[in-house]
Simulated scan of single mutants.
Amino acid sequence: MSRKPEGGASGGSPAGKGEPVPLGDELLLIRGERSFLLVGKAGSRFPLCIETPDDEYCLAVDPDDLVAVSMPEGGPVEQARMMLELVRRYHIPLVVLPKDHPGSKRLSMVVSVAPEIHLSCDIRRGTHPEQHLLCSSGELTGLSLAGIPGGVLLKHLPDGAMVRYLDAENSSADKQQ
């Protein structure tokens, strides 16, 4: 199921206050020309463990917090959906790689869970334990998202970025993308 978000979110949000987009159980797909970001609400309160090279710590995730999966080179939306649900429904821990880990180059997707998330193309994938910062492609860099009651606030939505809803349970139309 897809539908255009209310308020006409289809690119170019103002740099100021941002654009609120309603979001319930469905997922929000923000797509550039070659990359995308899949976003959902956490939906419940749960602890999420972050595994770093030197330590483990747990975050308290609240229902309005966001779970975001970035695929900087694009790929199957269904793959991103599975990753999002592993975190949101099954509370799978997130792993942070050391800064110079060779595997960072091969990560096709990265995940962030936080009340507010900022996208940047200037960071190395998988190496940032700070959950407010998420690696993205250059075409989505600068985008900020904040979980709000009943929705998500989009700030700095890049021109040309398309925003649409995906039904949380059925995405067969997006499997081929």
Rank of each mutant, 00 (worst) to 15 (best):
P102A: 01
D167G: 04
R88M: 09
L107Y: 02
V39K: 07
P76S: 11
G16C: 03
R34K: 13
G103Q: 06
S144E: 14
M83R: 15
E139K: 04
S137G: 13
S44W: 06
K99T: 00
C58I: 00
D64I: 03
P14H: 14
K4Y: 02
D64P: 01
L119G: 04
P102Y: 00
Q79K: 11
T127F: 11
L119Q: 05
P98N: 01
R31W: 08
P129C: 00
K17M: 07
D167H: 11
G150C: 09
A42Q: 03
D174F: 15
P93E: 13
I148A: 09
S136Y: 05
G7V: 10
G11A: 07
P115K: 00
L38N: 06
G12A: 15
G24D: 14
P47T: 07
S13W: 00
C49D: 12
P98D: 03
E78M: 12
L94F: 14
R31V: 01
G75A: 03
V39M: 13
L86R: 14
D25S: 12
E26Q: 10
S144H: 06
I123A: 10
S2C: 01
V39L: 15
V87Y: 07
L134G: 07
G8K: 12
A9H: 02
A114L: 01
S10A: 11
V111A: 14
S172T: 14
G151P: 05
S172A: 08
L23V: 04
F36W: 08
L27R: 06
A9M: 03
I148M: 11
G150F: 01
L134H: 09
R3F: 12
V110E: 12
E56F: 11
Y90H: 15
E116Y: 00
M71P: 10
G12V: 04
A173V: 14
C135L: 04
M162H: 10
Y165I: 07
H132Q: 11
G32C: 05
G151N: 10
P47M: 04
G75E: 01
E33P: 06
F46Q: 06
P149M: 02
H101F: 05
V39D: 12
R124C: 02
D167C: 14
T141Y: 02
Y165K: 09
Y90W: 12
V95K: 15
S171K: 03
G43P: 06
S120K: 08
V113L: 05
I92A: 13
P98K: 03
G126M: 05
P129L: 00
S136V: 02
V77C: 05
H128F: 01
G160A: 04
L157A: 09
G18A: 09
I30V: 15
P102R: 12
I50K: 04
E130M: 10
S171L: 05
V61D: 05
G11D: 06
K4D: 00
L154Y: 06
Y57E: 04
G74I: 03
I92V: 14
R106F: 15
P129Q: 01
P102M: 02
S137Y: 05
P63S: 00
E26N: 11
H91S: 10
G142V: 13
F46T: 06
L28C: 03
T141M: 11
D174T: 10
S70V: 07
L48W: 08
S2P: 10
Q79W: 00
L86W: 09
L29C: 03
G138D: 11
R106C: 08
A9R: 01
C121D: 15
S112Q: 07
P72V: 09
G103I: 01
